[in-house]
Write a protein that binds this DNA or RNA. Structure first.
Lengths: 126, 126
DNA sequence: CCGAATCCTCTTGGATACTG
DNA sequence: CAGTATCCAAGAGGATTCGG
């Protein structure tokens, strides 16, 4: 499949399009991207994730991890030690998503100056 | 720059990281992605965009277009005809973002079956 | 046709306190 | 350490109405 095969919604393809939107909406929520990046080098424990992702609350970390687990993108390993330990890790499918995600992150990093300048220019023009 | 150069937040890099997050949050909002895809083949008029992006309200289309314009990712051309006509188009910077975005869309399209199966399996297990 | 403005709803998400 | 439960505020976003 090539990029040009992906056509958004001529009405007839609309039904096919919905699952894709569901997936994109999940990926594009507030925290999923950052969890992905945080897990890119291997398993990470719950509180380590929490420290690594600046500003995320315990609640949202839990919720987002559960959703990603449900989608089969990350796996959860519970060690019944005392104190308990839980590792989160990308699955094979999750790792296959890492390339596009990192491409986005790389783009954002490369273009932040351009964008900030565009904003300043826009704000002072009006 | 390679992918491995992008490290998320060792505390010392935290300040550098914030602009990147701002940009990602913009890209990853509910509608920006779809506007990008809709504009990938050239200029599109306001109401054509509205029809093309299923479910978007006039309000959110306007707001999202304004934000993307402020970031220098799309341009707006107003033809003072009657009735008026306004074309939206990706800028050069915007087009450079198209590749990573389409990679994501392609991934979502290729993996929707896998994800839906993972969801069903997860939901029936518990 | 292309919006701006208002109103109102519902989701998102933070703060806090409590369990195993 | 790794959660769960509850409460509450802020903002996203839809519906509708009006203007150029």
């Amino acid at each position: 499949m090539t990029l040009s095969d992906i056509e958004f919604p001529t009405p007839s393809e609309d039904a096919d399009c919905r699952p894709v939107r569901e997936i994109l909406d999940r990926i594009a929520d507030k925290w999923s991207l950052y969890i992905f990046v945080a897990l890119k080098d291997g398993p990470v424990r719950f509180n380590a994730l929490r420290r690594q992702i600046d500003g995320i609350s315990q609640r949202m970390l839990t919720i987002t991890l559960r959703q990603l687990e449900r989608d089969g993108l990350i796996s959860r390993t519970h060690f019944p030690t005392i104190p308990p330990r839980v590792d989160y890790e990308l699955t094979a499918v999750g790792r296959s998503l890492l390339a596009p995600v990192m491409a986005l992150v790389t783009w954002a990093d490369s273009n932040r100056d351009v964008i900030e300048q565009a904003r300043r220019q826009h704000d002072q023009t009006r």
